[in-house]
């Protein structure tokens, strides 16, 4: 899932300085699971902001709302309606960057601020412990590397690793980071497919990733015909 980390509340406060009525919007999906932007975090951030503005002697109304997902119109609509009807002049979303983008393009002349730093695609290794496992590179090469991703887990995204920096299975950049290629080699040994390692992997085609420009994916077989969609809407 998407892993995010809460922004320092002082930074968030800076965003909304001068606003009168601000909605802190949580998301019930990924950021809830990674403890960064669910209802509980919304409460905490909102509370901290209320205390902060109160101490500044400023009258800022901070309200809270959390929806199932901030990346779907159906879930976001009530939120947008609330912002409009109740006259909010800013929104701080604790959803990932997707949510912030999504709201921003639908909300009209109210600024949406990010309340979290959207970090990576990763796993929940243990309570409060998240690990990046996929780089979302657009063209999966895991079949070549024993299922462990050098794009996400090698600091240098080397396709023919490991570099000379590995020591004791750790990456040269930190003793706390596993060397992705060390893991790959060990995994290949476990699977008895180390023979594959002999093959030189050619330079990647990065165009499938962000380097090919912003991505959009349409699943033809699932998409609605344009006229059906319009009919549904009316």
């Amino acid at each position: 899932m998407i892993i995010a980390d809460q922004k320092p509340v002082a930074e968030i406060k800076g965003f909304i300085e001068g606003k009168k009525k601000v909605l802190i919007a949580g998301c019930g999906t990924c950021v809830t699971v990674c403890l960064a932007g669910g209802e509980t975090e919304v409460k905490n951030v909102a509370s901290a902001l209320r205390i902060a503005f109160k101490n500044d002697g400023k009258d800022v109304e901070i309200l809270e709302d959390t929806v199932e997902r901030q990346c779907d119109d159906e879930f976001v609509e009530p939120l947008l309606a609330r912002v409009k009807n109740e006259g909010f002049d800013a929104v701080v979303t604790l959803a990932c960057g997707v949510g912030c983008n999504f709201l921003s393009t639908r909300i009209g002349p109210v600024q949406v601020f990010p309340g979290v730093n959207t970090s990576f695609l990763g796993s929940n290794e243990a309570q409060g412990d998240y690990l990046e496992l996929c780089a979302g590179c657009g063209e999966c090469i895991l079949h070549l590397t024993g299922g462990i991703c050098p794009m996400a887990r090698c600091s240098k995204q080397i396709m023919n690793g490991p570099c000379g920096g590995t020591s004791d299975g750790k990456c040269e950049i930190s003793q706390d980071i596993d060397c992705g290629w060390y893991l790959i080699v060990k995994r290949m040994q476990e699977l008895d497919i180390l023979g594959q390692y002999d093959e030189i992997q050619a330079a990647r085609d990065w165009s499938k990733g962000t380097h090919g420009g912003p991505r959009r994916l349409t699943k033809e077989t699932a998409a609605m015909a344009a006229e059906d969609d319009a009919a549904k809407e009316s």
Partner: peptide, 27 residues
């Protein structure tokens, strides 16, 4: 060396740099 090295700690270096690694050594 990875940009996070920054002169093995003796200098500031540029740990905030974006690295490239478009191709690797063998490539």
């Amino acid at each position: 060396d990875h940009q996070s090295f920054g002169g093995a700690g003796r200098l500031k270096g540029h740990p905030g740099a974006k690295n490239v690694y478009d191709i690797d050594t063998i490539q």
